[in-house]
Design a protein around this nucleic acid. Structure first.
Lengths: 349, 349
DNA sequence: TTCCGCGCGGAATGCGCTTGCCCGCGGGCG
DNA sequence: CGCCCGCGGGCAAGCGCATTCCGCGCGGAA
């Protein structure tokens, strides 16, 4: 006692000595290998481990067996409910398999994403899950793919969430179809004049949703006036600012504002409220994602449901499923369904 | 090419051979040790590394130098904005120091928390950050402390967020004072009759906030009727149900419902709304935490601000600050300030 | 010209652990 | 009664890397 300051952790060697057995036996007792070990010995080892408060060194184990049991997860912004829900799904599924999750945040920068992938590769994770919308036209895109490919070729599994077309396992949301269905529902509810709050032009997700929505409207001969399509960051504040711009530009007869994500929709609602515009009295709003808070804002937000936690869960399942030591089953695609949810923010007209 | 399937990653050895230098030189070139290495050689090594797409094996590095550069973070529920904001702060601060964050989720179970701490110890993280309210009276509490102590004694740093009294570095929020200040502000705003929506009795955070609030009211000779203190899970749904119970029990002349957390407050607001009770027309609401969505609900939620991301940031700073190889500077306490934020959910009466 | 010291590359050691392999022992079968 | 086989303990060889120490070569001082 007392000497306290910073001893080093007990090693397997210590345990073995304390139990009076060999290293091999200690190792085999503690994580049951294929080999059996005499129950007496096993108990002795377990007791010694407990006595010494032994905790196996994962790094050493990883080095020795040449594989880890970690999952690396890359998200744009963990404070964003969209990502945190997905992360929750990933973590839950991973922990169920005894895997540990390491997480990194790109802050929506593709350069940073590349850096992080490079860094995470050093962990030799079993699985690497990337989420967040791809931006095409990014210069680091090619480098990213190269890095991921290198990782995959050395036995790593890559799964992308919500971004199609890359040669890896993928869990996608049908943004286009979901948005189109939403548009149809809204037209059926009596809306005719729309505005849209979008993310930056390069963001595939934003673009797909806008396209789906526009096409849905087009089926009914309705178009969104170009002036009524505004853009901002793919965040709550981006939605706020875009909506503010929209208001400043004059919303004419706009009846409903479609925001390409719930967080943007919520920002937009705040902007409308601040401008003294009543939602849904003066103008209706709809979003996309069905994040938890969508039902808690007032009026509750009409949106398109995505089973977010499921996205995460299925991503790890997809990653782990591959017993198939494959050439290119690697680019499997799981498509999850969306569902239009009409709430008070878009009452029937 | 083509052979594709699962080669093993390039090792430092490969790089050294490819560059025609020794292992030592390669190592020194790639992560600049104290020793200098001839610029020519260095370039050769760098080139070889790039050519082979080399990525250093962190596990091996960890084993070799006997220390890792990871931070382990334990939260109750990553989808809860309270925790995800803290996590965001932790991750940002950790990444700024070149540390990798591994995350685990306790799902509010103390047994699970213990298991996870045990597991995470195997990672030999530099720092372990636990967040989430302590529940006293838990049987695993002692075992948890033992585990953490063992970890700390072997050189690990433990930091607790928002839970006082344990012999480790701690970042605390003054829940009591914050709630008391809130009570004072609300009384000043003209409120006199209160109800409270709380978490389970054992949750220290919930208890402190309720106590502070009650004492704040007591300063003005006001008390909360025991029937008007309801309990539920420390979640959005818990708040919803507790408020529903409150409503069912009859709210008499209650003017304001204080929920001990914003998520519970938001649940409570939903319950009130569903019961046809107008907020704040019929009844006002206040919460605690100032999560992002507090300002986006309607009416915007009166609450007590906690700089959540800062909590995370300061936790890692505290953990890393200790150059002091100490006996028990380890139980340092950083106290962060709270700030009452009055919003539309509690207009002056 | 000789010697010493310094700068820097390389061989070797070790980190904590897993696992292939050898070997001793006991039991079943011929 | 002897042989063979299988069970299971232990030895030791790594896993990929950092780091210590050794030694070589070169430059400057005497």
């Amino acid at each position: 006692m007392a000497a306290s300051s910073s001893a080093s952790p007990a090693t397997l060697h210590d345990v073995a000595r304390d139990a009076g057995v060999s290293l091999a036996t200690a190792s085999r007792s503690l994580n049951g290998s294929t080999r059996k070990v005499n129950e007496d010995y096993r108990q002795r080892v377990l007791a010694a481990a407990a006595r010494l408060n032994y905790s196996p060194n994962f790094s050493a184990q990883a080095v020795a067996k040449g594989s880890t049991s970690t999952v690396a997860l890359l998200v744009s912004d963990i404070a964003d409910p969209y990502f945190s829900s997905i992360a929750a799904g990933v973590i839950r599924a991973a922990e169920a398999q005894g895997l540990i999750v390491t997480m990194a945040v790109t802050e929506r920068s593709t350069e940073r994403e590349l850096e992080l992938v490079r860094a995470l590769r050093g962990q030799r994770p079993r699985v690497m899950i990337l989420t967040g919308s791809r931006s095409d036209g990014s210069t680091s895109q090619a480098a990213l793919i190269a890095e991921l490919t290198a990782f995959a070729r050395t036995g790593g599994r890559v799964v992308l969430i919500s971004q199609e077309g890359l040669p890896f396992g993928t869990v996608v949301v049908d943004n286009y179809l979901g948005a189109r269905a939403l548009a149809n529902s809204l037209v059926a509810a009596g809306y005719r004049r729309f505005a849209a709050v979008c993310g930056e032009r390069a963001l595939v997700t934003s673009r797909d949703r806008l396209a789906g929505f526009a096409d849905g409207l087009a089926e009914h001969g309705i178009a969104i006036h170009p002036d009524h399509v505004v853009r901002g960051e793919f965040t709550r504040d981006g939605g706020f600012e875009a909506a503010a711009a929209l208001i400043a530009g004059g919303l004419d007869q706009v009846e409903l504002v479609f925001a390409v994500s719930d967080v943007m929709a919520i920002g937009a609602m705040s902007a409308l409220r601040e401008a003294g515009i009543d939602v849904p009295g003066d103008i209706a709003v709809a979003g996309f994602d069905d994040i938890d808070t969508a039902r808690d804002v007032t009026p509750a937000l009409t949106t398109v449901n995505i089973p977010l936690a499921d996205l995460g869960r299925r991503a790890v399942e997809l990653a782990l499923s591959d017993a198939t030591d494959v050439t290119d089953v690697t680019d499997q695609v799981i498509r999850v369904e969306t569902r239009v949810i009409l709430r008070a923010s878009s009452p029937p007209r």
